[in-house]
Amino acid sequence: MLTEFGGILAFFIVGAVFTAGGLIAAWLLRPHRPYPQKNSTYECGEEPVGTTRVRFNIRFYVVALIFLVFEVEVLFLFPWALVFKQYGMIAFVEMLVFLGILVVGYAYVWAKGDLEWDKPAPRFGKNAAATVYEEQNETVLG
């Protein structure tokens, strides 16, 4: 018995087979002459410095957390979106309450500044460039 999901499985298989086929064809055709310099990590032609597993901005983590909250919420909204017309006003109001709770959390995140990213401070005015130079000179020359 083949359901419509069998078609989906076929797409997964065809996608994987195509990728494998392409890579195998290339494997048969291409040269293979490795040496240590060629296999070293690319860092603009320089010798690689330090480790790759460096620290990165904590904001990536925060974004992932906020995403998770929203995504789960959307997951709950989809079944509702399909049927809410049949149940009329009551279903709509109930979902407004659900959304309202989420909006409170969203406003909290916004107010706490977790949606802010570091941005370069804008400098305005005619002498903006001159001011930057002077500041630089002061920090460097003391």
């Binding site: 064809a25 290339a26 291409r30 002459r33 240590p36 296999n39 070293s40």
Partner: peptide
């Protein structure tokens, strides 16, 4: 297709 496939060490 013909290009060498480099897997970094």
């Amino acid at each position: 297709l013909q290009k060498e496939d480099i897997i970094p060490a």
